[in-house]
Design a protein around this nucleic acid. Structure first.
Lengths: 343, 343
DNA sequence: TGTAGGCGTGAGAGCGCTCTCACAATCCCG
DNA sequence: CGGGATTGTGAGAGCGCTCTCACGCCTACA
């Protein structure tokens, strides 16, 4: 169609010629650079400089079987991904580590089944040395599919399928448990919870933490106080309104997400209950929402950046050492006490 | 370190053997597949199926000099990128087109100067067939750097440097002009504007549109009514408060972004002016904010998804046909009238 | 002084693929 | 029914790189 000024594209060969050495020696200089005399090295580096040589990655990949890039797969609608600070923090953590190891991060966001199919081809096509997968939904087939292939995989968040996969997760059970213990310690004894969708590991884990804390405190587990939600404000508002009608004696709520806590707050206000005097609230996430709520929410803080870093570290190790041992890392959470629990 | 069960990794050779044909024939089937008899094709496809063959991309790249992936470079803090719906919409548009052409999208978000350096190496290393660049800041060196290299580039948003680069932009001048014309048509004659940082093309263009519309309506341009902002709410609030003190006779404001319009709204409320009766407002973006503001904002709607699509189309053409002609595409905007301008 | 060992270097064999070219088989048209 | 065009297929030459191996040199030690 027209001019496409492809430069002569310097090769190892050209550099070798310029430096008066063999291809092998240039290769040694370009890479780790073992076993090259300082004199030779200087000559070669000069030639590389002069010629503006850059190695051809395809050729290198072909023989080393490595691409020096890893994928971050997030099977969520782009609207979600870009709307949620969670992913911003995760990506930041991941990049922190990857930049050191000179691994490129490739973001892959399959939107449709056909995208997933293309993705599968992309992965098995040897484009990537490893995959970081953020698995949110229980029915997601990707973790199992990927762990069946030979490519190293690290999952963010506990996968629901019991597959033998390395993963990093925050301590959802422990976090929820300490949130509810906090409420028990404040003398609350009719503690309800707003859960996420229970097919998601994160939701199930937080519910389990809630139950454990009740048991710890010698409080009975009442299924009527476990309100199934979807992590969103809207539903939480409805559920809480219902709850107040059915169980007017409730004196505390543990919400499994900040938006749900905000919904609960609205329902309580509508019902004329004061927070924290009549009903104390603790939630999970410690997002910006927790701080801007009225009153500010006590919430469980999660080390999302650290989760990203740990995922990247794990994957780097697997890629570098060809290490396929499945590891699991659980990161501690922290309770931040604010006005909503009387802090 | 340990077991890394690399499968025998099927090759063209193996498939050819299995199918009883030559490598060349298998290659023809795998690719476009011209000039192969239906019978042979069936046999080969059977063999591919049976062996679970996937082409080795590195080997292919080495000879074709193509990687079938393009990069989206966004030199912004990850917090920004993931917090702004703009990027979600842009990525969606881009993916729409790219999925068709079987091009993979690689998201690159250099955070530091050292990241930019690594990025440069990545690009010149031949990892990518082309680059989509979202250039927001005037002083960004990336557009010039990239257009100097041989890799095809399409920029989103008009670059401030006059480099010969293909770009796609929304009609910021035209949009601002029609926003302000709308105010003039409603009989407003003391119209102020809240601008963005004027080193950004988008801000400069919107200011130009404002001035043109005033001229169109026979209204004088008064520099005292041009309030320099930064696209954010906070500053806009201060500037508007100042303005009302200095020019109490203002009867309309054109804000170059929705958040700034919200800031203006707050300042007007504090000053006891009613909107739209005392002061009419039109803003730019038509984000979710415009709808949720009180009163809802008249705003200029931008075709962000279409911008993404057009960028992808342009780049695809450049990559496929080795076409380096610089093209520029300007997309029309649309005024959405709501209560803030008395609609 | 002889020999073992270490070090720096080069030769050469591929990695898996595409693509040009040559060749055989089939077709078409006068 | 013959000559040229068309079609399907295979042989083989690389693409640019890494990596193993062999070789010559220098040092160390007996």
């Amino acid at each position: 169609m027209s001019e496409f000024l492809a430069k002569p594209a310097m090769t190892l060969e050209a550099v070798a010629l310029e430096a008066g050495v063999s291809r092998a020696t240039v290769s040694r200089v370009v890479n780790g650079g073992n076993r090259v005399s300082p004199a030779t090295r200087a000559v070669v580096e000069g030639a590389i400089q002069r010629l503006g040589y850059t190695p051809n990655r395809a050729a290198r990949s072909l023989v080393t079987r490595r691409t020096d890039s890893v994928g971050l797969v997030i099977p969520e609608p782009t609207g979600h991904i870009f709307g949620d600070p969670f992913f911003a923090r995760l990506v930041r953590g991941i990049s922190d580590i990857l930049s050191h190891g000179d691994l490129q991060l490739v973001l892959l966001t399959p939107q449709s089944p056909s995208d997933v199919e293309r993705l599968a081809r992309y992965l098995t096509g040897g484009h990537l040395d490893g995959v970081l997968l953020v698995s949110l939904h229980g029915q997601d087939p990707l973790p199992a599919f990927l762990s069946a292939s030979t490519i190293p995989v690290v999952v963010g968040g506990r996968p629901t399928s019991g597959a033998e996969v390395s993963f990093v997760d925050v301590d959802n059970v422990g976090g929820a448990r300490s949130a509810v213990r906090h409420l028990v310690d404040r003398g609350r004894c009719r503690i309800a919870t707003l859960t996420g969708p229970l097919d998601m590991a994160v939701a199930a884990d937080r519910l389990e933490g809630y139950r454990l804390a009740l048991a710890d405190g010698g409080l009975p587990v009442d299924r009527g106080l476990e309100l199934s939600g979807d992590f969103d404000r809207e539903t939480a508002l409805q559920r809480t309104a219902d709850l107040l009608r059915r169980h007017p004696d409730v004196d505390a709520i543990f919400a499994a997400s900040d938006p749900m806590a905000v919904g609960a707050l609205q329902a309580l206000r509508a019902a004329g209950r004061s927070v924290p005097d009549d009903v104390a609230i603790v939630s999970f996430d410690d997002s910006a929402l927790a701080l801007s709520a009225e009153p500010p929410l006590s919430s469980i803080r999660q080390p999302i950046e650290e989760m990203g870093r740990e995922m990247a570290r794990l994957l780097t190790r697997m890629v570098t050492f060809r290490d396929r041992v499945a590891r699991r890392v659980i990161l501690a959470t922290e309770l931040v006490v604010r006005a909503s629990s009387g802090g």
